[in-house]
């Protein structure tokens, strides 16, 4: 029992590792701040494109979404960070992670938005167009607000996934939280820094997950 406490819940080691782990948390949050807004916008564009009149665009997007959803995000990340230099494109680890997670999550956000857009009845379009609003105004002021509201729990759920996915960045040596905690672990030969990181992830995401459950409950989905 004592050995387990020593190995996983050693408060002294946690305190030593804390500055490094919290610096890692800063990087994790920075990646989130880049990927989540990009993904939210990218996903919306994907969803709108999937409803375009152009069959070519629809087909291209459908293929791209299938590819990105079938490909493990870690494979995508390594392909970008290890593959692109051979094409003469050298990106920083931060840029590689942002690009990989943006591509991956846009596909997922896109599917969520698509369900949202489809949930808005056609009568809403007609009513808005009958007051002289353009298709674009109708989309922005009538359809998208309702679509987002209808799929809010799924959008939040996908956002939680994005935060968790940022831990993949440790593989390409981006010093986010997991990478930093693992560094501390390998220096101290003790798993407590990993536990600290886990606790921070929990503290960060558990309230969001709770909120999500309540949202779903309220919307009756």
């Amino acid at each position: 029992m004592d050995a387990i406490l020593q190995q996983f819940f050693n408060l002294d080691i946690m305190a030593q590792a804390a500055p490094l782990v919290f610096r890692g948390l800063g990087m994790t949050l920075l990646v989130c701040c880049a990927v989540i807004p990009l993904g939210l916008v990218g996903g919306l564009l994907v969803a709108l494109g999937s409803r375009s009149h152009s069959r070519l665009l629809r087909g291209l997007l459908a293929g791209l979404i299938d590819l990105l959803r079938a490909l493990p995000p870690l494979v995508l990340l390594i392909a970008i960070s290890a593959g692109l230099p051979f094409a003469g494109i050298r990106l920083s680890p931060f840029a590689c992670v942002t690009l990989a997670l943006f591509l991956n999550t846009s596909a997922y956000y896109g599917e969520v938005y698509r369900a949202g857009l489809e949930s808005v009845p056609h009568g809403q379009w007609e009513a808005a167009r009958c007051t002289g609003m353009t298709a674009w105004q109708t989309l922005v002021h009538v359809v998208i607000p309702q679509a987002v509201r209808n799929v809010l729990p799924d959008l939040v759920s996908n956002t939680v996934e994005v935060v968790k996915l940022t831990s993949l960045a440790s593989v390409v040596a981006l010093p986010e939280m997991l990478y930093s905690a693992d560094m501390a672990r390998s220096v101290t030969f003790n798993s407590s820094p990993i536990v600290l990181a886990a606790l921070i992830y929990l503290a960060l995401l558990w309230p969001v997950v709770r909120l999500m459950s309540r949202l779903e409950h309220r919307l009756g989905t």
Partner: peptide
Amino acid sequence: INLMRRKLGMVFQSFNLYPH
């Protein structure tokens, strides 16, 4: 057509109010 539509008000069977 957008200019003309606002001169041609329409009321629907299913109201179609914006719920939000």
